[in-house]
């Protein structure tokens, strides 16, 4: 299955992080593409900008933001959107993504990905804002499913159904974070396979993999270690559903040397090959 926009399967990518700038420039590693945290490159004229220019000349770049705050009831930040669009133009971003969340309200930014209540009011609110952002950017927005640590008493829609309806009603694309599916399902006693079954795969243009921390009573999306086996299993399911989608490994804390990162993301290759060959990889 290809996505409805015919956006390319970029292959296997990693996040472009400050710690790896020198390595990437010097070694030009055999990675298919890089993802950048949009905000880390939006307001800088320093080394980050220079490095991005060089990297973008050699690799496809995908922008992934953390501050769009698409679910907030605060007005959309026009200055932020202008900066986002300018950065996308500068680096030739293949697509622009962010999270289904809100990051602050009343002018106070908590710099976290806070959960949405899954209600009809929230759905209408988010759909309207995604449409406005897409009109502004002139391209589909790629929205990622969040890791959540609580639910709201007012929830009337499951998260997976909310995401499916949000994508259909706003005509946005989806970034399916497989680790987030696992974490959220663990935290809220949901079945991850049932969750995955509800998603519109013709809208999934990118997949995230990451490590998490299991605290026993709950899981935290820490991005600080190798991808766990249970997440690889879900990734195998997703590969069958998408028919192959750009896959990125997130590793944002205790960041290892670049070759370690590469070795981890290359583990995804066998699942992608298995999808072509129609075999099960456990």
């Amino acid at each position: 299955m290809t996505n409805r926009w015919n956006l390319p399967d970029l292959g296997l990518g990693v996040g472009l992080r400050t710690q790896h700038f020198s390595y990437v420039l010097e070694h030009q590693p055999d990675v298919d593409w890089f993802e950048i945290i949009s905000e880390n490159f939006m307001d800088t004229g320093g080394r980050a900008e220079a490095v991005l220019e060089e990297v973008a000349a050699r690799y496809p770049i995908v922008m992934h933001g953390v501050s769009l705050s698409i679910g907030s009831t605060d007005p959309l930040d026009t200055r932020y959107l202008e900066r986002l669009r300018a950065l996308a133009d500068r680096c030739g971003a293949v697509w622009i993504g962010d999270h289904l969340c809100w990051t602050g309200v009343g002018g106070h930014n908590g710099h976290d990905l806070y959960p949405m209540p899954y209600t009809e009011e929230s759905l209408a609110h988010v759909v309207g804002r995604i449409r406005r952002v897409q009109d502004f950017l002139g391209r589909p927005l790629v929205i990622e499913n969040p890791s959540t640590y609580l639910t709201f008493a007012e929830d009337t829609i499951s998260e997976a159904e909310f995401i499916a309806r949000m994508a259909n009603d706003s005509d946005c694309a989806l970034l399916l974070d497989v680790n987030n599916v696992y974490v959220t399902c663990r935290n809220h006693d949901l079945n991850p396979t049932e969750y995955l079954d509800q998603l519109p795969y013709d809208r999934v243009v990118q997949v995230h993999l990451a490590g998490h921390t299991d605290k026993g009573t709950h899981c935290i999306d820490t991005h600080d270690d190798h991808v766990r086996d249970e997440v690889w299993s879900l990734y195998a399911e997703v590969q069958q559903c998408t028919g192959g989608t750009a896959t990125l490994l997130e590793w944002d804390d205790n960041i290892p040397e670049f070759p370690v990162l590469m070795a981890e993301v290359r583990k995804a290759e066998r699942f992608r090959q298995a999808r072509h060959e129609g075999v099960h990889v456990g």
Partner: peptide, 13 residues
């Protein structure tokens, strides 16, 4: 939605 967001942000900060 606005009320719940304002409340939650006040609690977690």
């Amino acid at each position: 939605l606005e009320q719940i967001q304002a409340w939650m942000l006040r609690v977690v900060t």
